[in-house]
Computed example of a mutant assay.
Amino acid sequence: MEKLLEKLQENKYVLWILILTITIIWGYAWVLMKESLHYMGPFAFSSFRFGIGAVTLLLMVFFLKVGFPPRESWKHLIVVGLLQTAIVFLLVMFALKFVDAGKTSVLLYSMPIWSSILAVKFLHEKITPAKLAGLLIGMLGLLAILGGDIWMGQDVHVIFGELLIIIAAISWGISNVYYRIHVQHLSKLQATAFQMLFGTIVIFFVTLFMEWGEPIQLNADSVYYILFTGILASALCFFVWFVIISVVDMVTATLSTLLVPLFGLLFSSFLLNETMSFSMMIGFMLIITGITVAQLKQPRRV
């Protein structure tokens, strides 16, 4: 692993190709998540997806001889799994029944806004003028999307779905802060594998309770959606992502995730024929601008 990190640090072109590849896969995954609802319920798909993802990661843990996390960390991994895997994707997949895939990706990737707010309170990070301005701009973006839909008389189910996605983004932000406080000392692969395992268990029981007896169609398309999102988008991409953030600064890493909703919008537009409203475009630009501004470093005073 150390040799791989050294090679990536030496070859920045390979590093950026990896970043671009991951963000394209994550952006394309939104189309598959939306399309999967034609074949099964949102919770059943999440059970299949993260079940496959968790098994893949656990096999990587075994073959790479990473080992089990210490027992005192299990309760924290359960919390992270509940917040980051279970709550986020149960809410997002349910919301996808009503909300376009492209819009869902934009709203969910408002997560850095909520992470920044929570970091000030719980990680005692300073709220710089740049962060404050970025947060305000990002909030305006969310209001533009929600307010635009309300103003245009959008279906109440769509508004409800959008609110669920924002709650999911907040849950993701909480998990990031909780991870920094309680789990950061663990191996990245170890933490990802076991939090996904615990989150998947929660999703499985929710599926049994909410979707028992509902039809599940397993065919070439639906199996492809499960395998792509489970193995590639969930397991392998997260593993490569944690390798990447080990060799680049967090500002660069955070800014690169802004490509995900961009690709999500592009793929959804071309493959699902989704259209972007004016308020959607304004909201997207404001959220992207807000997150970018919040990441700016203040110049040092001489």
Rank of each mutant, 00 (worst) to 15 (best):
M1T: 11
E2A: 06
K3N: 13
K7C: 08
E10S: 08
K12V: 03
G27S: 09
S36D: 00
S47Q: 00
F48R: 01
F48H: 02
R49H: 02
L64V: 11
V66S: 08
G67I: 12
F68A: 09
F68W: 08
P70Q: 09
V79I: 15
V79P: 06
V80F: 08
V80R: 08
Q84L: 15
Q84S: 15
A86M: 14
A86E: 06
A86K: 11
L90T: 13
L91F: 09
M93I: 07
D100W: 01
Y109A: 08
L123V: 00
H124R: 08
K131L: 13
L132N: 09
L140Y: 04
L143S: 10
I150C: 08
D155S: 06
V158D: 03
I159L: 14
I167V: 15
S175F: 11
Y179P: 02
H185L: 03
Q190P: 02
A193P: 05
F198G: 15
F204H: 08
F205W: 14
V206L: 15
L208I: 11
G213C: 05
P215A: 03
D221A: 11
D221S: 13
L227D: 12
V240T: 04
V248A: 05
M250T: 12
L255Y: 15
S256Y: 15
L258H: 11
G264S: 10
L265H: 04
E274M: 09
E274G: 06
E274Y: 04
I282H: 07
F284K: 03
Q295V: 05
Q298H: 11
R301K: 15
